[in-house]
Amino acid sequence: MTTATGLTSRIIPCLDVRDGRVVKGVRFQNLQDQGDPAECAARYAEQGADEIVFLDITASPEGRDADRDWIRRTAEQVFIPLSVGGGVRRVEDAERLLRSGADKVALNSSPIDRPELLDELAHRFGSQCVVLSVDAGRWEEPRADSRWQVVTHGGRRPRGLDAIEWIVEGVERGAGEILLTSIDSDGTQDGYDLELLAEVCQRVRVPVIASGGAGRPEHLAAALRAGAAAVLAASIFHQGTYTVGEVKAYLAQQGFPMRESGA
């Protein structure tokens, strides 16, 4: 925090979208309708969100394509960076998202099956477009050589792959940012996995977005202290517990550089 930069820490609300609607649920279960994605994003942007992340959890590829109109509608009224993840398997999928209005695409499970996808996307669109989203969880049986493994499918499918090594490889292949979700803390509202976060921040130089476990503004402060460039939160904003503005005011008071919101 003493480095000579005017860069602020970013506060990023995350919206899960299914069939073109914002939904809320813990680990993709018991989903409830929360409204129109463009309206939700505009509201957060007005509150001072520095960026919006959409995770499209629409089950079928057909449903996804049919409903991508919400990205375009969001991009026509929200002029801060928009990241969209969900179902990107090929360069053409990413291109469709970018043309719809995404500034960045987030990739989770598909590069695990085919890591070259990261190289292809970075080469084609630039690393600034490529967010590697990694869900990491502690091994059920502790191992000497690895502390966290990569998990996909909303935490249900362990991949037997060391999370730190995978992130390092992803950055080497061209990921420009890491969206790091702790599966162990996701949905708990007990705070981010700070050990995991600190470890990843030490290993890569690209910005790391902390995700999974935010319940109070103090949790966001702790994640920023652990080295996160940005903090992502969902429930605390969706439930209206705190507005983005309130969280930013608290963090500013704690000494974190924040972009002043509003105009």
């Binding site: 480095t3 930069t5 860069l7 602020t8 520095d50 960076p81 420009g176 130089r205 460039a229 940005a230």
Partner: peptide, 30 residues
């Protein structure tokens, strides 16, 4: 410092140029 430089940073030493009309000094840009 971390490179790439990604995020919101503020301007300083703004010149009095009409490009900045109505924009407060020290505003943040992406």
């Amino acid at each position: 410092v971390p490179v790439p430089h990604i995020g919101w940073n503020r301007l300083h030493d703004e010149n009095n140029h009409p490009l900045f009309a109505g924009i407060p000094n020290g505003s943040y840009f992406y």
